[in-house]
Design a protein around this nucleic acid. Structure first.
Length: 286
DNA sequence: ATTCCAACCTGATAGC
DNA sequence: TGCTATCAGGTTGGAA
């Protein structure tokens, strides 16, 4: 569920509280899956580092680090996966505080104590699809980042047209492929396709230049709008009364199968495209 | 080279 | 009521 807008909102809200602060303590969970870098190494290498700021590449957050002497000392990479969340938390989550103890919530995989902060930064992820890695040197060369295409926020029609040209797969698969453009997930693929009137199952090579232009515009605007209203949290998709973000209120098709299309009043359908649940309006999208 | 699909994991829910 | 089966999804890595 966290896609580019949710990650960007997270970055913007978290940065002011961590920027310039020194990490005074690190706690990790026993879970194995989230750690691309061994938990012990994360604890040892992160302690004492200063966070210069938070960047973003697609759905990845990149914490720029500096050592005690003021030299750049690498990057903490965080991917939220599907259920990951980065929050500034307190004892409500079962952490005794003051450098002692372990969070009672087993889903908290990383806890950063910051000098001068009462509350630690927590990375919580029940399904453990999220990832934590510590990258020395040039983060961009890490395989996880090196393969990513340009940020989807800047998608241009021409670039989308060339990415789609000659492909035997569907246009939705092209949007979801992070090597083409980074940041689009299932929700915003469906929403952007709806806004541009393109059916998700359309063979990518049949997309016209005009459609590519409209779709790229739809991608940019839907991502920007979602960021504006705080993203959408649908990990709780069966109770979409919107506790975290507000964008799910504006979803035109995602998780709306069987409901009326907001444009034509036809029925929104759900199928499988690119091995994902896919929502669209058969009348508005051709 | 490109596309497809299983696997990773947990929690919510549908069905029996 | 309580159990089991199914599904959700981002990414990778291996198969087709």
């Amino acid at each position: 569920m966290p896609e580019l807008p949710e990650v960007e909102v997270c970055r913007r809200e978290l940065e002011p509280t961590v920027q310039g602060r020194v990490i005074s303590g690190v706690v990790t969970s026993k879970a194995k899956n989230p750690f691309l870098t061994a938990a012990r190494v994360v604890r040892e290498r992160l302690t004492g580092q200063r966070i210069l700021g938070i960047g973003r590449r697609g759905k990845y957050l990149l914490f720029a680090l500096q050592d005690a002497r003021g030299a750049a000392s690498g990057t903490l990479l965080v991917h939220l996966g599907m259920t990951g969340q980065l929050v500034v938390g307190t004892k409500a989550l079962g952490w005794p505080g003051n450098g002692g103890g372990v969070p009672t919530d087993p889903h908290i995989h990383l806890l950063l104590e910051l000098e001068g902060c009462d509350s630690p930064v927590l990375f919580r992820d029940p399904r453990q699809f999220g990832k934590i890695a510590l990258l020395p040197g040039d983060a961009a060369r890490h395989p996880r980042l090196a393969r990513l295409g340009p940020d989807a926020l800047g998608m241009e029609g021409d670039a989308l047209f060339s990415a789609a040209r000659g492909r035997k797969t569907t246009i939705k698969a092209v949007l979801l492929d992070q090597t083409n453009f980074a940041g689009i997930g299932n929700i915003y693929a469906d929403e952007a396709l709806f806004r541009s009137g393109v059916r998700p199952s359309r063979p990518a090579h049949k997309l016209t230049k005009a459609e590519a232009g409209r779709l790229a515009y739809a991608v940019r605007t839907v991502l920007m709008r979602a960021i504006e209203v705080g993203g959408s949290s649908v990990s709780d998709y069966l109770h979409p009364d919107g506790s975290s973000g507000y964008f799910q209120i504006e979803h035109a098709v995602y998780d709306r199968s069987g409901e009326p299309c907001r444009i034509c009043w036809g029925v929104v359908k759900k199928t499988v495209v690119a091995q994902r649940g896919t929502h669209f309006c058969p009348r508005c999208q051709r």
